[in-house]
Design a protein around this nucleic acid. Structure first.
Lengths: 245, 245
DNA sequence: CCAAAAGTGTTGGCTCTACACCCATGA
DNA sequence: TCATGGGTGTAGAGCCAACACTTTTGG
């Protein structure tokens, strides 16, 4: 048995020679790495930055947590594959999605050479994420600061994604994809502080953000336990990412 | 005939159904996109930013120019594949190399679904680039501002690479990989002006670069037609790229 | 009326840009 | 000696960080 199809990966046992040749076109000459997409989905809940993991059902990594991903099919766009897998495992229909980097170390999956194109996705309301489907044992949010051991090289991917998120928070309006439609300045500031891992000066933050002219002040206020806060929203969402530099 | 091996790409005719199934594991279920690396090599020569192209020998794109690239083999690191292909087509042994982005549109190559992991490479002495080998019809430097029509989606890759180069020039010391070991301030400034496409203030530029503390002043001077210029070199090359922010 | 979060300006330091003249050499 | 590219300083503007008190509401 040279080829095993699991729910997550097509596994080709390497160097098994002629027995595999008729299945996959020949190990030595025609065997090729496969392409997968893996998506790091970020969201903010309970005042923490979280990321969504699924628990693998089969393979050497059965039982371990990983980012939702799958092999790419012929004819499929990479983005489309990432989106469809994400929708299948979280129900999110149209999240912000951005390609990060491709990881191609042949040993990242000990059973097959799979090149993973890593993506980052952002969700504005983690509560709405549902059903991991039958493909995985489970799926849930984990605090980014305390991820469990991950399958494959997914901890490397996690670190890369977080780095990218931090960087883009500073010079783009990417934050709008991590917030609900309307929000208070305090919430926006908390998001920045959460992701960047440091406190921000409220007055300077407010000035800086307003200077960008990306926010629209709403007439409503949010009423809580104390003084009500003005609500804001980002200008048309279609400006998905503005590079501010 | 469902599968054709050319020198550059394994071409799988899509949607040809059962006749192909035994060759490649079955179109519908097991057929997978292949992975290639394509590398945009930059260099400066004759006071122009140039990039190295090779002329394809076979396939639908025979005769067209493209960046050196090939399919990745099972067991191969992406970086290794990019380096080995680059060395094969230019003779460069250890250039600066950086992964850019993966392009996976199934229509980018009309004959097969190949996901291309694009790389950028930099050479400090374009003159030394030799021999394109027998794989390509030809290979030579083209001015970046005047590239010929390119094969596949390589013009998209070219644009992406140039954008990345410009960006990193501003916040890293990546420039050291585009210059010979020692150089004058005028040469460094010219490089920046060339890549960024705008003139720089000589005094401000000098101040800014020196403030970074990455240059070592050499005792020698370069003697030309007029006043000799002080030579500099970057501190140990091993600091390949310093992120300056 | 009190607790708690929302909202608001000013100042000093630093950085960046704009700008013009003298210097050293080879021919 | 002259043509040419090498080398240098300063002043004004804009930007950013530091910093504390008043306002508004719910309870």
């Amino acid at each position: 048995m040279g080829v095993v199809e699991t729910s997550t990966r097509t596994i080709v046992v390497p160097r098994s020679g002629a027995t595999v040749a008729h299945r996959n076109g020949g190990e030595s000459r025609y065997a090729r790495p496969k392409v997968a997409v893996d998506t790091v989905l970020f969201g903010v809940a309970e005042r923490r930055l979280k990321s969504y993991l699924v628990q693998l059902k089969r393979g050497t990594n059965a039982g371990r947590w990983a980012f939702p991903g799958r092999l790419v099919r012929v004819g499929e766009l990479l983005d489309t594959a990432a989106r469809s897998e994400l929708e299948a495992s979280t129900g999110l229909d149209d999240p912000y999605l951005e390609q990060l980097f491709s990881f191609g170390d042949p040993t990242r999956d000990p059973k097959a050479h799979v090149v993973s194109v890593a993506y980052m996705a952002l969700s504005g309301d983690p509560e709405r994420v549902a059903a991991c489907g039958s493909k995985y044992l489970a799926g849930r949010w984990f605090e980014v600061a305390a991820l469990p051991p991950l399958a494959y090289d997914h901890s490397v991917i996690a670190a890369y994604a977080l780095k990218r998120l931090k960087a883009k928070l500073e010079y783009t309006n990417i934050a709008c994809n991590l917030l609900p439609r309307s929000f208070t300045f305090a919430e926006l500031e908390e998001l920045y502080a959460l992701v960047l891992g440091r406190a921000l000066d409220r007055r300077n933050f407010r000035r800086r953000i307003l200077a960008m002219g990306l926010l629209r002040r709403l007439p409503q206020k949010r009423h809580g336990a104390h003084r009500p806060a003005t609500l804001y929203e980002f200008f048309p969402r279609s400006l998905r990412t503005i590079e501010m530099l």
